[in-house]
Amino acid sequence: TEYKLVVVGAGGVGKSALTIQLIQNHFVDEYDPTIEDSYRKQVVIDGETCLLDILDTAGQEEYSAMRDQYMRTGEGFLCVFAINNTKSFEDIHQYREQIKRVKDSDDVPMVLVGNKCDLAARTVESRQAQDLARSYGIPYIETSAKTRQGVEDAFYTLVREIRQH
């Protein structure tokens, strides 16, 4: 089974770092803004072998026109913010609204991801993020692309959301 996953969120929150940590098991430290990259990885989730087709997208506003296209083809979405960047957390709402509009559905598989949880300088409390996820009816997972904490959990949870859909 193949799953088309799309990673969305503001610029600099760590979308590529999360994806590369999942696929290649290493942490990319330097920031190089993405336009669009796709990665494929075969994994076993709950005993089922599946192929993850992951689209890593641009957070930069100037590429926002490309969003409709990949939102149409994606089956599930990782909505990523950084726990030390309140603005990126506030941006999640717009991504969710755009996904709902493009998919013409209120019920699209999504996982809210709070990345950079290895950093002490948190400005978005776990509780705020949990409340937001609960209001959307989606899971919330904290990750660190640096330490790998929660990385597999985030992507695998999204696959489970798609399966249950």
Rank of each mutant, 00 (worst) to 15 (best):
L78Y: 06
I83H: 14
D131K: 09
N115W: 01
G114M: 07
D107S: 11
I20D: 02
D153Y: 07
F89E: 07
V108Y: 12
V13P: 07
R72H: 06
S16V: 01
D29A: 09
T157M: 10
V113T: 03
V108N: 13
E125C: 12
Q24G: 15
L55N: 13
C50I: 10
G47V: 05
E97W: 03
L22R: 05
D32S: 06
L132E: 01
V102D: 04
V28T: 12
E75I: 02
I92F: 13
A65R: 04
Y140G: 01
S135V: 10
I162L: 14
N84P: 08
C117E: 09
A82E: 15
K4L: 06
S88T: 08
V7H: 01
Q128I: 12
V151S: 09
A133H: 03
N85K: 06
T49W: 06
I83M: 15
D104T: 12
Y140N: 05
P109H: 08
M110S: 02
I45C: 11
V111I: 04
E61M: 15
M110R: 00
V108D: 01
V80Y: 01
D91S: 15
G150M: 09
N84G: 14
D153W: 02
M110L: 15
D56Y: 09
Q98S: 15
E48H: 12
M66N: 08
C50K: 03
V8I: 10
L22Y: 11
F155S: 00
D46W: 11
N115A: 14
T34D: 04
P139V: 06
Y39I: 04
D118A: 02
L22F: 10
D37E: 01
A82G: 12
P33Y: 03
E61W: 15
V43G: 07
E2L: 07
E75P: 02
K87N: 03
G114R: 00
Q98P: 01
T34V: 01
G14R: 02
E61V: 11
A120G: 13
P139R: 06
D53V: 00
S38I: 14
E36C: 02
G47N: 08
K116H: 15
E62W: 15
L18F: 15
V13N: 05
R148I: 12
M110Y: 03
A121H: 11
T19V: 13
V7C: 04
F89V: 14
E30T: 08
Y3A: 06
T147I: 12
D153Q: 12
N25S: 12
Q149L: 11
R96E: 11
C117D: 04
R96W: 15
K41C: 09
L132Y: 05
A17Q: 10
I83R: 09
L78T: 01
G76V: 09
F81K: 03
G59K: 01
Y136H: 07
L55I: 08
A120C: 13
D107T: 14
G59S: 06
A17F: 00
I99M: 14
E62K: 15
A133K: 09
T157A: 14
E61Q: 14
N25P: 09
N25F: 08
Y136N: 02
L18N: 01
Q69C: 14
G137E: 02
T49K: 07
K103F: 14
D46Y: 12
G74V: 04
L112V: 09
A10H: 08
D68T: 03
I23V: 08
V6C: 08
I99P: 02
G11Q: 08
L132K: 05
I162C: 11
I20T: 06
D118R: 00
S64L: 15
I92W: 07
Q149S: 11
K100D: 07
Y95M: 15
V108I: 14
Y39V: 05
H26Q: 09
D37M: 01
G59W: 01
L119N: 15
Q130V: 09
V44M: 08
F81T: 05
G74E: 00
G11C: 12
G74D: 02
Y31T: 06
A58M: 06
K100S: 09
L55F: 05
V13M: 11
E125K: 09
Y63E: 07
Q130D: 10
Y3D: 00
Y31H: 09
G14A: 01
R134M: 07
E90M: 10
K100P: 00
Q128D: 13
E90V: 12
F77L: 02
E75F: 06
V159C: 10
Q42H: 11
Q60W: 14
N25L: 07
V7R: 03
A120K: 14
P33Q: 06
K41D: 11
E48R: 11
V43W: 12
K4D: 05
L132F: 09
Y31S: 04
R67A: 11
R134Y: 13
Q24W: 06
Y95G: 05
C117A: 08
L22T: 13
E36Q: 04
S64M: 06
Q164C: 05
S135L: 06
L18S: 05
D153V: 09
E61I: 04
E142I: 05
D104A: 12
A65L: 03
S135C: 14
G137W: 00
Y136C: 11
L18K: 04
D153A: 07
D104Y: 00
A133S: 06
S105G: 12
L55R: 02
V43P: 06
G14F: 00
S16Q: 05
D91H: 10
V8R: 02
R101W: 04
T143Y: 04
H165D: 14
Y3L: 08
A145L: 02
I92C: 11
Q130L: 10
R67V: 15
V7E: 06
A120V: 07
G114Y: 00
S64R: 09
I54A: 07
R67S: 14
G11H: 08
G114V: 04
Q69G: 09
I45M: 10
L158K: 03
F77C: 03
A82I: 04
Y39A: 04
I141S: 05
Y70H: 02
D153N: 08
H165Y: 11
N25I: 03
Q149V: 07
S144E: 09
R67T: 14
V159D: 01
E61N: 08
G9M: 01
E36K: 02
D37I: 03
K4T: 08
A58G: 12
A133T: 03
V111D: 00
V80I: 10
I45L: 12
A133Y: 02
D107G: 10
A65E: 03
D56L: 00
G14C: 02
R96I: 07
A82H: 10
E36L: 06
I23K: 11
Q94F: 14
T147Q: 10
E30D: 05
R72A: 07
D91M: 15
R160Y: 12
V43Y: 12
Y39Q: 00
D68H: 09
V6S: 05
Y3C: 09
Y63G: 12
A145G: 13
H26D: 15
D131S: 07
T143N: 06
I35R: 06
H165R: 14
S144G: 11
V102L: 06
V6K: 04
I141M: 03
Q98F: 13
S144D: 15
T1D: 11
F155C: 06
L158W: 08
K4Y: 05
G47Y: 08
E161N: 13
R40D: 01
V113Y: 00
L51Y: 05
R96F: 09
Y31G: 04
G137M: 08
I35A: 03
V151T: 09
E90D: 08
N25H: 12
R160Q: 13
C117H: 09
G137D: 08
I141T: 04
D68K: 02
V102C: 15
V124R: 08
A121Q: 05
E90Q: 14
T73R: 08
M66I: 15
A145E: 00
E90A: 10
I20L: 08
I45F: 12
T34G: 01
I23H: 10
T1Y: 10
E30R: 04
H165G: 14
P33K: 12
T1N: 13
G59Q: 05
Q60V: 15
K41N: 14
V159F: 03
K116P: 00
K41F: 05
Y63L: 12
S88C: 12
M66P: 12
Q130I: 14
T73N: 09
K146W: 15
K15D: 05
V28P: 06
N85H: 06
P139Y: 05
G9N: 00
Q149H: 13
E61P: 10
T57P: 02
G76A: 15
V111L: 08
V108F: 15
R96K: 11
V8G: 04
S135K: 12
K146Y: 07
R72C: 04
V13E: 06
K146S: 14
R127N: 11
E152R: 11
T49Q: 14
G137N: 08
D153R: 10
I54R: 11
G137Q: 02
P109I: 12
R67H: 00
E142W: 13
A121R: 05
P109M: 07
C79K: 03
V111G: 00
L5E: 00
V80G: 00
Q69A: 12
C79L: 15
